[in-house]
């Protein structure tokens, strides 16, 4: 099904279908994200984040980045979120509302975030007001992504593997009980 979405979305005639899908997904993402930062239960917050992450994966599909979408699901949903839930449960998350999750002065955060959002939206509107995506879009093939990673970006890739190793060791060292 998803590839049908993809195919239709990227064809000329299917633009409107893709648009509808996109707006639904975007709405879900925004609502879930808002719930995530306002809910007063940690596990609920992680589950809302889960929804946001899935929605982002769906956005990737609409953008023709199939591999990135699959990676998003594998890494974020399969690993990072499980890890977070693990952490939440290990730190004795309560069932039901908690009182002490937020600072008292939320308006400062809201103010800063809104101001930041306003500035960004304004500049985006100024910069890319009526720029449309290329009509004839081809899904980016995994093979091409692999070629790109292992030729142009080989050095960052290797650096990243070292980073992951360092993070692994770091996490073990930090969390170890001695």
């Amino acid at each position: 099904m998803m590839n049908l979405v993809l195919q239709t979305a990227l064809s000329d005639t299917g633009n409107w279908i893709a648009n509808i899908f996109f707006y639904i997904i975007a709405a879900v993402a925004v609502v879930a994200a808002l719930k995530m930062v306002t809910t007063n239960n940690v596990v609920h917050a992680s589950l809302y984040l889960l929804v946001v992450l899935s929605a982002v994966a769906a956005t990737y599909v609409i953008l023709g980045a199939e591999f990135a979408a699959a990676t998003q699901v594998l890494v974020y949903l399969g690993a990072i979120m499980v890890l977070l839930l693990f952490g939440v449960m290990l730190t004795r998350a309560k069932i039901g509302a908690e009182t002490d999750l937020d600072y008292d002065q939320r308006w400062i955060g809201a103010l800063v975030a809104t101001a930041l959002g306003a500035v960004m939206m304004y500049s985006l509107w100024e910069g890319f007001g009526d720029v449309t995506m290329p009509a004839e879009q081809v899904p980016q093939r995994t093979e091409a992504v692999a070629d790109e990673i292992f030729s142009t970006y080989i050095v960052p890739f290797e650096a990243l593997s070292v980073l992951l190793l360092a993070a692994l060791i770091g996490a073990v060292v930090v969390a170890r009980r001695d």
Partner: peptide
């Protein structure tokens, strides 16, 4: 499809994250 619709979504999510 506009490029901006994606960028706006990103901007909104970013600001929510900042909040």
């Amino acid at each position: 499809m506009f490029l901006n619709q994606f960028l706006f979504l990103a901007a909104i999510l970013f600001c929510i994250g900042v909040y």
